[in-house]
Amino acid sequence: MSNDDLKKRRVIGPDGIEFEVNPMEDYFCTERPHPESPANRILEKFFNWARSESVWILGYGTGCGAIEMRPLMTPRFDAYRFGIQWRPTPRQANLLMVSGYLSVKTLKRVIRSYEQMQNPKFVMALGSCTINGGMYWDSYNTINRLDHYLPVDVYVAGCMPRPESILAGLEELKKRIRAGKGEGANAYIENLDWYKANQKKIIKDWDMPDYNW
């Protein structure tokens, strides 16, 4: 899809009737998101415990990090015993696991996936590529610091981090959620303008609404 396809225009339908198409209005929801306030204190504590013990991962397998997720979900390291499961759709997942460098092209997809997840949601970034660019820090085509584009909850350092360190990172994430610090989704919406400005600096062919519902 190019940017021209998203422009408002008049088209002639198969039955010969001319009508107006405005893809941004017709196909997308252009509404701005709003932060969701937590439940009352006691209930939220219980919910946070449930959230921390039932983490559903949307694996964004970019770079070399995806290869470390397989031992994590199979018998050797078996993350399922800690309440960590993989879901195939962003709608049902809570944790976006970005597993390596992000090129300009993949950044767009990762943003779309993240925005389709439901509040509360968390981001875990693996490897030095997401922290400071790692070995690709001076590449013409990759971003250096994921924190500028998405609210990252936990970084796991390494090149690549082994499954043990990812498990340690997940434990750290659980502690954060239980402490009520897993409010990345609301932080993202509150600072949406700043995040969007950063994202648009990188993504030149912006052919989607500002927030992908």
Partner: peptide
Amino acid sequence: RHGIRWYQLYLDLFKNYA
């Protein structure tokens, strides 16, 4: 494998309702 905990389905249910 060790697999999920036997009460994991409760947690998933609470999480999704929350």
